[in-house]
Write a protein that binds this DNA or RNA. Structure first.
Lengths: 333, 333
DNA sequence: TTGTAAGCGTTATCAT
DNA sequence: ATGATAACGCTTACAA
């Protein structure tokens, strides 16, 4: 910067003014500075700038696991939303280890990130402690928080359950099973409640022991399918509360020679890329990933600006994409 | 920091010394400082520190797309390798848009990242320009570079092809097809050459028009299977150069009612989580993702230290995991 | 072993 | 419209 100033025959402050083009600068001077910047290929040092203006233009993102289709989607869209606004993303995964999570957040705070986005807060983490002290804006996505005090962008999970139930009910299914996420997580319970609501309007049954509590991972889908079928062979349709578990359900069904959708209809949730790849292609409840991410960084930055008026919680609507894993129940089934 | 110094009745430099515990400090003084740090919950500002010592402890990672199983794996392991060494990761994806890529790299340089890792350099990108000027260490992973001048950590791709060929050949397959990655990419050609080598030792045939050039994406696997079967119905086994395409091949085979492995053996490559989820579970050539990532950040940091002795290229060995998608060719097939 | 002071590369305040 | 100067929060000679 010193060099640029020298070459352009101006002071460093003028160079700064040109670069941040907010304060009036003589056209001729500006030109001189700009060519000097070009010639020297000068790149402002963002650490110095950040130190001075107390803004790093960095957003921290905390997820349990990066190689997980759902989170990978969030990361991708959040990155794009951030870059579009001149921010970059620091990602960290904690594999559900609260101490790892803590130390990562600690790192983010020291780095003076302008905000932190959590995708799925681990239950045990006492992140609140950090957040309060550091006074850094925080937005939670994907998992509605027990921490009501945190801002969040979430899906209408009750509605998601309804959509799944309506689809299955209107196809004519009356004996139905469900593989849920961990029930201590409100989101899983809300989805289940919505599902129940819809089914009851069809007079369809969802026996308590046809509800299997999974953990959103593939393997629990397999276990769930096995458990549900053992107790309720009459069931003709299953909703898994995410696609990964749905794929697990499918895997088990194929292993025992049960066809989908001929012998069992199957609905997932999320619409990860995987849903289209498997055979049969999965009918699934969709999340507006991109929109969620846009809103989240928008909200985060608004909070950083001290915007008190911004709503504490944004709720977005799920959708449905019908593919090949659902049909009317077959008479033979 | 000023507050800590005041509370502990020492100078700021002493606080600094305690925190960076490299320079001898009186035990008693150290204790006083530490309790002051605790009491005030003091967190050193990493931007200020970075500015001073000219090290951001930040590593930039450039990938084409985050929601892509292969890259998601890299991100996850790179993040862990980085954190283990006290670094954080800034991720950016460019969707194969060179101008996006450029502006992201530019951002990284201004942020004074201590190094940049590229997973799969886009062909057209003139990143070299940036790299040279900025004098920031760079390591390329996954895609052996046409840019010989860049340091890299890559797989022995020729060997990967051999492993696939050996497996299929030793099962007794003699008429074989292959879905490759883009052939302008050396890695695809090397894999193919290794595959050919192995097959020729078995006297197995790989007709030129049973080699389909894909793009490492799901859809090209479907197209490839269709094209290969149209020209060569006698083929009993296919190797797809990544799992995603293998899943595409499988999808097509199932659509036309061809069973795997009864009617066709199928081998993939990468061993992404997906490989275990599909039915049949995919036999696949493995990449040591974790090791690649470890080596990459190790190498990057060594370069930052000005370690000239570090080798310009590290080559790691692939493996094989046999699951349910391969078998000896069936007489009926 | 500890303190003083300069400096990292910016921006902001205050003159001019 | 521009320049001089202090300050952002830290580290590091150098001195004591």
């Amino acid at each position: 910067m010193k060099d640029v100033a020298k070459l352009a025959n101006v002071s460093e402050s003028t160079v700064s003014r040109v670069i941040n083009s907010n304060i009036p600068v003589d056209a001729e001077t500006r030109r001189r500075v700009e060519t000097a910047v070009q010639k020297l290929d000068y790149k402002p040092n963002l650490m110095a700038k950040g130190l001075r203006i107390k803004r790093s233009h960095l957003i921290g993102l905390v997820v349990p696991e990066i190689v997980h289709h759902t989170f990978a989607s969030f990361i991708q869209y959040l990155e794009e939303a951030a870059v579009a606004r001149g921010y970059n993303l620091i990602v960290g995964n904690h594999r559900d280890d609260p101490s790892l999570e803590e130390s990562f957040i600690d790192m983010l705070v020291r780095r003076n990130v302008d905000g932190i986005i959590f995708s799925r807060v681990s239950d045990k983490s006492r992140i609140m402690k950090f957040i309060d002290k550091a006074r850094v804006p925080v937005v939670v996505i994907d998992r509605a928080a027990e921490h009501e005090e945190l801002a969040s962008v979430v899906l209408d999970n009750h509605r998601a359950g309804q959509i799944a139930g309506d689809h299955l009910g209107s196809l004519g299914h009356r004996a139905i099973g469900c593989v849920t996420g961990p029930l201590r997580i409100p989101l899983s319970r809300e989805r289940l409640a919505g599902f129940r609501d819809a089914l009851s309007r069809f007079g369809a049954s969802l026996p308590d022991d046809a509800v299997f509590e999974g953990d959103f991972k593939f393997e629990s889908g397999m276990r769930g399918a096995e458990a549900i079928l053992r107790g309720h062979p009459e069931i003709t349709a299953i909703w898994a509360q995410n696609d990964l578990m749905a794929v697990g359900v499918l895997k088990h069904l194929l292993e025992i020679g049960r066809e989908v959708p001929a012998g069992m209809s199957l609905v997932g949730m999320d619409d990860i890329t995987l849903a289209r790849m498997i055979t049969p292609a999965l009918t699934t409840v969709t999340q507006p990933f991109e929109q969620i991410c846009e809103k989240a960084v928008e909200m985060l930055l608004a909070m950083k600006e001290g915007d008190q008026s911004s709503p504490g919680r944004i709720i977005l609507e799920p959708g449905l994409v019908v593919r090949d894993s659902t049909s009317a129940p077959f008479p033979s089934a």
